[in-house]
């Protein structure tokens, strides 16, 4: 999604590479049509950052709902539930957060045009993301409460589910970038696609850190 929609059709845009994305505009040319080039692509990164800023506010709203409901609900945990197990999710968290560093290594490799190394690091990032999703699913299956069990159950599944959708989206986007890296001349027009997906991945990780703190570390009332 991020790449195919946030780009100008290559047929219309002679300056764009097959990826459809020029380098995200050079600052010294100022806004607009630089050296008279006929380009209305190449603004992908700008657009993607604006999108992420907006997206982060959905999470901010959900966090706010969680905090308010936790502070005001007369009954919080469903009957018979003591709290959430922290150990497994903590391992999951460490895997997901450190995958951000791996993604960074992949991007650095790509900058240095070490394509094979880029693919290996990128694949490892995807594997760590998948590990997280599987771990999350296993946790869901083992929990003694469901979506309808009080405000806590609803909040827990909505927050982790919405974040999990983002992790899955991130892995799928990375798969798309990996597939594209095999096309010849893919990076002639810049690496805005990979940079955008990398940003998205860091974003998903940062959201998880906050989420982990809210759901697992802040269990008392």
């Amino acid at each position: 999604m991020a790449d195919s929609l946030f780009s100008t059709p290559a047929a219309l845009d002679p300056t764009a590479g097959p990826q459809g994305s020029g380098a995200a505009g050079s600052p010294e040319q100022g806004p607009g049509h630089g050296s008279g080039e006929h380009a209305h692509g190449g603004y992908n990164l700008t657009g993607f950052v604006i999108f992420l800023a907006s997206e982060s506010l959905i999470f901010a709203a959900l966090f706010a709902a969680y905090i308010v409901l936790k502070g005001s609900a007369p009954l919080w945990l469903p009957a018979g539930v003591e709290g959430l197990e922290v150990r497994e999710p903590l391992i999951n968290t460490i895997v997901l957060v450190s995958s951000s560093g791996v993604a960074w290594l992949a991007e650095r490799a790509l900058h240095r045009r070490q394509l094979v190394r880029f693919r290996l690091w990128w694949l490892l990032t995807m594997a760590m993301g998948t590990w997280f999703v599987v771990g999350q699913a296993r946790e869901w299956l083992g929990l003694p409460f469901g979506l309808g069990d009080g405000v806590f159950g609803a909040c827990f599944y909505l927050l982790t589910g919405f974040h999990g959708l983002h992790v899955i989206t991130g892995v799928l986007l990375m798969a798309l970038m990996l597939w594209r890296s095999f096309r010849p001349g893919n990076y002639d027009g810049g690496e805005a696609g990979v940079t955008s997906v990398g940003l998205f991945w860091h974003f998903v990780d940062v959201i998880w850190i906050v989420l982990f703190a809210l759901l697992y570390l802040w269990q008392g009332r």
Partner: peptide, 10 residues
């Protein structure tokens, strides 16, 4: 003075 929007397909 732009030719179109930044992301026409979007």
């Amino acid at each position: 003075g732009a030719p179109d929007m930044a992301f026409p397909r979007l």
